[in-house]
């Protein structure tokens, strides 16, 4: 299968007054053409920073990609100049964000904003670009695209704006689409519309999608593979069916159990006790150990490696030899 993206040993740190925040601390994954990888985790786990790193949009000088490789179609993005990256962003790799209102420019029409991408990357004239924009709006299911193309963002509803964002992101037929919480700001019936659209477009255009979200339900609906992150590291990674049917890492198990199940009735929900550790004072050993029911002595001393265990990868001493793993 054609590999679009390969991330190896990615480390993105932020240097702040309070110390060094290791937001992404050694992340590896690959993504193939036409596949969707869901990256899930709670606030501060590094999922968004991972996607920003792929786009090379980490805000410098505070943030810095300190180590690793990001291979896009075999080409290392970390070796590119800013000018080369500009040719890639919005063209070969594009991104949609959580908040469709703040990511569209309020003083330009929808058509104007989609045209910009097409003129810049494909050298189209305004006339050609407008025709293409209308075609894109039609593709994402916006009614009356000939009329909507001349409207401003405030004239559209939240769901429509997110469709416009998707139209813009897909205008140049990118090989990779990064969607960072694309439906979080939307209502559930509109979310269902957008998820259907993303599934349909993936099949028709063969775009590889990196879907960043905190909602395990959304991942279960659209992703082929899931990567669960905790405190800057991948704790579990595998096929979507595998992970939801047989979660192995205690954190993944806890996350799945904390969502109320609508087909079942329980008095109290299972919870993960405690809080995510302070990013400046990560515990030694496994970063989940202080909240883990199964924590052993080894977990507090050594960092378990991400090991392969029948079908999917997991970073936990419950599945492997606790004498291995790095100290610290």
């Amino acid at each position: 299968m054609e590999q679009v993206l390969e991330v190896k040993g990615l480390k993105t740190y932020f240097y702040t007054e309070d110390g060094v925040a290791k937001s992404v601390d050694g992340v590896d994954f690959t993504l193939s053409k036409g596949k969707t990888l869901g990256i899930v985790g709670e606030s501060g786990c590094g999922k968004s920073v991972t996607s920003l790193s792929v786009m090379r949009l980490v805000s410098e000088p505070a943030g810095k990609i300190v180590d690793g490789e990001i291979l896009f179609n075999g080409d290392n993005l970390l070796a590119k100049t800013e000018k080369e990256m500009r040719d890639i962003r919005g063209n070969r790799i594009s991104m949609i964000f959580q908040e469709p209102m703040t990511s569209l420019n309020p003083v330009f029409t929808v058509g104007n904003q989609i045209n910009e991408v097409l003129k810049l990357h494909q050298g189209m004239t305004t006339k050609e670009a407008t025709l293409k924009s209308i075609e894109m709006l039609k593709l994402v299911g916006i009614p009356l695209p000939e009329k909507r193309v001349h409207e401003y963002p405030h004239q559209l509803s939240g769901g429509m704006r997110q469709r416009v964002m998707i139209a813009m992101a897909l205008a140049c037929n990118p090989a990779l689409l990064i969607a960072d919480e694309p439906t979080t700001a939307l209502d559930v019936t509109i979310q269902a519309q957008i998820l259907e659209l993303m599934k349909d477009l993936k099949e028709r255009l063969g775009t590889a999608i990196m879907l960043v979200t905190h909602d395990l339900g959304v991942v279960a609906e659209v992703a082929d593979e899931v990567m669960v992150m905790y405190a800057g590291r991948v704790v579990e990674h595998g096929a979507v069916r595998e992970i939801f049917a047989k979660p192995m890492h205690p954190y993944t198990q806890g996350l799945l159990k904390s969502i109320p199940d609508i087909s079942e009735e329980v008095e109290f929900l299972e919870t993960i006790e405690g809080l995510v550790p302070n990013i400046y004072e990560m515990p030694a050993g496994c970063s989940f150990a202080p909240r883990c029911k199964h924590a052993m002595d080894a977990c507090r001393e050594r960092q378990p490696a991400l090991t392969y265990d029948g079908g999917h990868k997991v970073r936990c001493f419950l599945y492997g030899d606790a004498s291995e793993g790095e100290v610290g």
């Binding site: 559930v188 019936t189 269902a192 519309q193 395990l216 339900g217 609906e221 939801f244």
Partner: peptide, 25 residues
């Protein structure tokens, strides 16, 4: 009915039939 059918299920084995509503509120 539409609202309940739109809840994304965290179990990929369970695929409810989804009623997609047209348009916006």
């Amino acid at each position: 009915r539409a609202l309940l059918s739109a809840i994304p299920s965290p179990n990929p084995e369970i695929r409810r039939e989804r009623i997609l509503l047209q348009g916006d509120v």
